[in-house]
């Protein structure tokens, strides 16, 4: 399967099933487009008809030879050898290796788009996770992780720093169990920044592998959607704290992460604003919200958003040229390594190797399902009760999803979120707008690779 497209002056050809990526001239681009369906004579005639005398017959035949050579080498028109190998997902034994720990179902902001319903998660009451529940959750993770060594715990909410003492004690507890259990804990934390102080910063720089700092971009954009409980914006409080935190972070990972909505479809300006503030690791994602909300992304917005992704890609290349590179999370694509095929095809792991734990110890497939009783899988005291539901999540792989199995992005996207349920009432469907945007981001990410490769050649 071939996916080819033009972007920012580059003709890009992706050989989907081998992962090969080629940048080609106009002649090869057109020949590849018709290569499988036409004879060589027909190709020559079609090219001559389109370009007149621009290319000689010798040029065209040589290009055909180059293409045939790549095909023989398994770098073009490669067959899909994976769909039959991966088919038996349901029988695979899965272990838990990551928990999203809802350390606080409470929040000091009142963000309008919050899928956690300001920390209350749709009817769950405001509460903080106790140390006892947290310890039991870590025990559950260790006991259910089989022979996995690397375990991950994300402190999430609500606002995790509203329960900072328990966060600290749980990290200490996890570290105390690492050696005897033969495990390595990787702790991560997401925060809105309101409670960031020197003690929190020191702790995070010692113990937290990746910190996600929530900021939507420009002051007016951020404050419209992320007010505090008294209605005032959060920008002026959090930006100085984030800057201080990032300056102290050294080489440890962080992301300043924003959400864009229908109110700021020009989100490249927010990216630029955050980059100009000195943040070098940035993520901006489209809002996930019910269709009827006034800020929800609509189908009619897709074209504008795709143009915006193009602008963002060009800005990233420019910053690279100026020697001040900034990372945009969804444009990170490891073309030379990346995860193995098994990982690429088996999806995000929600409901199987990744579970969310509520403050009372209930288990859900991931943070986006918390509060939806239908998806409560069990609890940390009695383990998984709904194994049939876990089996359904095991099947969340790209070849089980009709919309994904022939999609050119399937080896980079892995089927997206199981939470397409919110839009299609099936975890085996795909969220259409999300898919469109994901495909566009992958196209831009590959184009950036082409541009940076050209830059390196020129140096």
């Amino acid at each position: 399967m071939i996916h080819q497209y033009k972007n920012n002056g580059y003709n890009i050809v992706l050989d989907v099933c081998s992962g090969s990526v080629h940048v080609v001239d106009d002649l090869c681009y057109d020949i590849i487009e018709m290569y499988e369906g036409k004879s060589q004579d027909e190709i020559v005639a079609a090219i001559r008809s389109k370009y007149g005398e621009l290319y000689t017959e010798k040029d065209i035949l040589e290009a055909c030879e180059d293409i045939e050579e790549l095909k023989k080498e398994g770098q073009l028109f490669t067959e899909d050898v994976y769909k039959d190998i991966i088919i038996d997902h349901k029988k695979r034994k899965t272990v838990v290796k990551a928990l999203c720990l809802h350390i606080a179902h409470d929040c000091n902001l009142a963000c309008k788009y919050c899928f956690a319903d300001e920390g209350e998660y749709h009817g769950q009451k405001r509460e903080l996770m106790s140390l006892e529940v947290g310890k039991k959750a870590l025990d559950f993770l260790i006991e259910n992780s089989g022979n996995r060594v690397n375990l991950e715990v994300d402190f999430f909410g609500g606002e995790p720093l509203m329960n900072f003492d328990v966060v600290k004690e749980l990290v200490a507890y996890g570290r105390s169990r690492e050696k005897e259990a033969g495990k390595n804990f990787r702790f991560t934390l997401t925060t809105n920044g309101m409670l960031l102080n020197d003690e929190v910063i020191d702790f995070c720089n010692r113990e937290i592998s990746n910190v996600v700092l929530s900021l939507d971009g420009r002051k007016e954009v951020n404050d419209l959607m992320r007010p505090s409980r008294n209605g005032k914006g959060s920008y002026d409080i959090i930006v100085p704290k984030f800057k201080k935190f990032v300056e102290s972070r050294g080489d440890k990972s962080y992301y300043v992460r924003g959400t864009f909505t229908r109110n700021n479809l020009d989100f490249t300006e927010d990216f630029k604003h955050m980059a100009d503030l000195g943040f070098k690791e940035i993520s901006i994602e489209p809002v996930v919200s019910p269709d009827e909300s006034e800020y929800a992304i609509r189908e009619e917005d897709i074209e504008k958003i795709c143009q915006e992704y193009d602008k963002l890609a060009v800005d990233i290349i420019d910053r690279h040229k100026k020697g001040k590179p900034v990372t945009f999370f969804h444009y990170m694509l490891d073309l030379t390594g990346g995860p193995c095929v098994y990982k690429r095809l088996s999806g995000c792991g929600s409901g199987t190797e990744y579970l969310a734990v509520t403050p009372t110890g209930e288990l859900y497939p991931c943070h986006q399902f918390v509060g939806n009783e239908e998806f409560k899988l069990g609890d940390i005291y009695n383990g998984i009760q709904k194994n049939d539901l876990v089996d359904e999540f095991k099947m969340c792989n790209v070849y089980a999803k009709e919309k994904c199995k022939d999609c050119y992005a399937r080896f980079y996207c892995s089927g997206g979120a199981a939470n397409s349920y919110q839009f299609h009432n099936s975890i085996l469907d795909a969220y259409d707008i999300g898919c469109e945007l994901q495909r566009k981001r992958i196209e831009c990410a590959i184009m950036i690779k082409a541009a940076l490769a050209e830059l390196e050649e020129g140096e």
Binding site: G19, Q75, D154, P339, C340, K343, C413, S414, I442
Partner: peptide
């Protein structure tokens, strides 16, 4: 220019890699 520049060729589980897209994750 050369007609075809190959950026990468044929790039395509121990379960130890990081979990929460996967295309931008790294591998063992």
């Amino acid at each position: 220019m050369k007609r075809i520049k190959t950026l990468t060729n044929k790039t395509l589980g121990c379960g130890e890699c990081q979990t929460c897209t996967v295309g931008n994750q790294s591998c063992n």
